[in-house]
């Protein structure tokens, strides 16, 4: 057993081990719910809807879809974060931007600004400051050109948003079936995110991603844009899927 850590010996804004991180809280941080595992000192956790943090939220948290999953930690002390034993990395942005899978984002300094990426399930951080993200296994940093299984993607920085690449052999074999909607895409070998240009791509060691409740909310929001006939069609489609 290692010597026990105390508020004096815990690291300052650094990893305790690959799977736990200590934030030296002096003010405010945005925090993904359920990710703090212990703390020393005086701190409070406020929902984003609370009046005392509304100005902060308005200026730095531009994603209503995810607002329910986040809180603001306020106070002074040492805050220990963990995420299901996943690896935790901290990233320092210097007037930069990085887009990360929403379910992998754990916490960020309130100096940074959060935006919702055009790619579903991803959030973009802008500005200067520190943020924390988790991954299943250590993150691999790669440079484009590279093609990544969508589920193994943690995020990307500086390069253009990805486009889809479909395996040519798979396309010729399955295009007819695909157009009829008879088959779905089942594995990363058939469809990948294609990254080009200059930048960095973050890949995690597993294609098993964390659940993202916002993905469902996003789909629900999009359904409101459908016509009555389209909704009936969707209803039938879902019915057929459920009985399969």
């Amino acid at each position: 057993m290692d010597a026990p850590l105390s508020p004096v010996t815990l690291p300052v804004d650094d990893n305790i081990n690959p799977y736990a991180f200590c934030v030296d809280l002096q003010g405010e941080w945005f925090l993904h719910k359920g990710k703090m595992i212990a703390y020393y000192g005086q701190m409070r956790f406020e929902a984003l809807t609370v009046a005392s943090v509304s100005a902060l939220v308005a200026a730095h948290f531009s994603s209503p879809l995810y607002a329910d999953d986040w809180v603001v930690a306020t106070g002074v002390g040492k805050l220990v974060l963990g995420d299901r034993g996943f690896d935790i990395n901290s990233y320092d942005l210097d007037d930069g931007n990085l887009t990360v899978r929403a379910a992998n984002l754990l916490a960020f300094e309130t100096r940074l600004e959060l935006l919702q990426s055009i790619v579903p399930g991803f959030l973009t951080l802008l500005g200067t400051g520190k943020f924390l993200a988790s991954s299943n296994g250590p993150v691999i940093f790669a440079e484009p050109p590279i093609r990544v299984d969508p589920e193994a993607l943690v995020g990307w920085a500086d390069c253009p948003s990805p486009s889809y690449h479909y395996d040519g052999h798979w396309m010729t074999q399955n295009l007819v079936g695909l157009l009829r909607g008879a088959i779905g895409i089942v594995s990363g070998e058939e469809r990948q995110f294609d990254f080009t240009g200059a930048g960095t791509v973050l890949i995690q060691s597993s294609e098993k991603t964390m659940a993202d409740p916002a993905a469902l909310r996003m789909m629900e929001q999009q359904i409101t844009a459908l016509s009555q006939a389209e909704k009936v069609h969707l209803h039938r489609f879902l019915g057929a899927q459920l009985t399969q």
């Binding site: 590279i146 093609r147 990544v148 299984d149 594995s187 990363g188 294609e207």
Partner: peptide, 15 residues
């Protein structure tokens, strides 16, 4: 095994 590919570089196809 199918589904185990995470990423690749170069010209690779999967069958």
């Amino acid at each position: 095994r199918r589904g185990a590919m995470l990423a690749y570089t170069g010209q690779v196809t999967f069958r």
